[in-house]
C-alpha cells in the first residue's frame, strides 16, 4: 500500500466513526455557514456605510474573505489534525506513529477528515461566484489557471505553516499557544486587505508568517487591482513559490523533529 492509499484508508475509517453522530454533522454545517454570514455581515455593514475600505469595495472584500476560506477549507479538510501534535507529545502517544511501518506524518494526518469544512468550501465558492458577477470580472484562461493554483498554494501555505508551528512542540513541549497567536494574524488577513495596516504588520504577514499570499496578493491580480496597490506587482505571482519554499522548510524541520523526539513515556 502506498502513502496515498494508506492515507485515504485512514481517512475512510475516521469518517465512518464520525458519521455516527449525524445530528452533530448538520448542526456543525449550519454553524459554519452562519458564522461566515455573521463575519461578512459585519464587514458588509462597515463597508456599505463608508462606501469602501481604502479602495476595496464590498464585493472585493467578499472575494478576499472567500478566497481565504476556500484555501483554508482545503487545508482543514485534509490536514488539520496537525493541531493535535501537542497532545500526542505531552501524553507520549506519539510513539504509536513511530512503531508502525508507515510514514508518521501520513498517520497523523489520516486521523481526521474535517468533513464539516465542506460547508466552508461551498460557502466560499458561492461567495466567489457572487463577487465575480457583481464585480463584472472577465477572466481569461490564464486567470482561471492562476486562480486554481492560488487556491492550492493557499492550502499548502496554511498546511506548512501550521505544521511548522506544531513542530515547535518537539522542542518546547507546547505549540498550541503559538498557534493561537498565529490565529489572530490569520483572522486579520482573512478579513481585511493588509494595506490598511501599518508597515510592521505587512512585513510580518508577507515575510515571516506569509499568510498574505493565501488571499491578499493573489486577489490583487485576480481583481485587477495591481496598479492601485502599494506593493510590488510581482508579489502577486509568488504564492506558488512561497508554498514550495515552505514545504521545503517544513520537510526539513519535520525530519529534525522526528530525530529529536524522545517519548515522554507514561
Amino acid at each position: 500500500m502506498n502513502a496515498f492509499q494508506l492515507y485515504f484508508r485512514l481517512i475512510h475509517i475516521s469518517l465512518l466513526s464520525r458519521m455516527q453522530y449525524r445530528a452533530n454533522f448538520l448542526v456543525g454545517l449550519l454553524g459554519l455557514i452562519v458564522w461566515n454570514l455573521v463575519n461578512l455581515g459585519l464587514i458588509g455593514i462597515l463597508v456599505t456605510q463608508f462606501t469602501s475600505l481604502k479602495d476595496w469595495t464590498l464585493w472585493e472584500l467578499v472575494f478576499l474573505y472567500c478566497l481565504w476560506i476556500l484555501g483554508h477549507s482545503l487545508y482543514a479538510l485534509f490536514f488539520s489534525h496537525t493541531d493535535q501534535m501537542e497532545t500526542y507529545l505531552i501524553e507520549g502517544t506519539f510513539d504509536q506513529f513511530l512503531l508502525r511501518p508507515a510514514s508518521p506524518l501520513i498517520q497523523v494526518l489520516g486521523r481526521e477528515f474535517q468533513y464539516l469544512e465542506i460547508a466552508d468550501a461551498l460557502f466560499a465558492l458561492t461567495g466567489l461566484g457572487l463577487a465575480y458577477t457583481h464585480l463584472g470580472l472577465r477572466w481569461d484562461g490564464w486567470h482561471w489557471g492562476f486562480f486554481v493554483i492560488a487556491v492550492m498554494s493557499g492550502a499548502v501555505i496554511m498546511f506548512a505553516l501550521n505544521l511548522l508551528i506544531a513542530c515547535t512542540a518537539f522542542w518546547t513541549g507546547r505549540s498550541r499557544g503559538a498557534a493561537f497567536v498565529a490565529g489572530q494574524f490569520y483572522g486579520l488577513v482573512q478579513w481585511y486587505p493588509i494595506e490598511i495596516f501599518g508597515k510592521t504588520f505587512r512585513v510580518i504577514v508577507t515575510g515571516f508568517l506569509p499568510v498574505a499570499f493565501i488571499n491578499y496578493y493573489p486577489s490583487l491580480l485576480l481583481l485587477n487591482k495591481l496598479d492601485r496597490a502599494d506593493s510590488a506587482w510581482w508579489l502577486s505571482l509568488l504564492s506558488p513559490l512561497v508554498a514550495l519554499l515552505l514545504v521545503g522548510i517544513v520537510s526539513g524541520v519535520w525530519r529534525l523533529a522526528l530525530n529529536r523526539y524522545s517519548s515522554s513515556g507514561s
Binding site: L46, F50, L53, K54, L188, Y192, I196, F197, G198, F201
Partner: peptide, 11 residues
C-alpha cells in the same frame, strides 16, 4: 487593539 485602530483610520 493594534488592528482595530488601523481599520478605523482607513474607514
Amino acid at each position: 487593539m493594534y488592528s482595530i485602530r488601523w481599520v478605523w483610520v482607513a474607514l
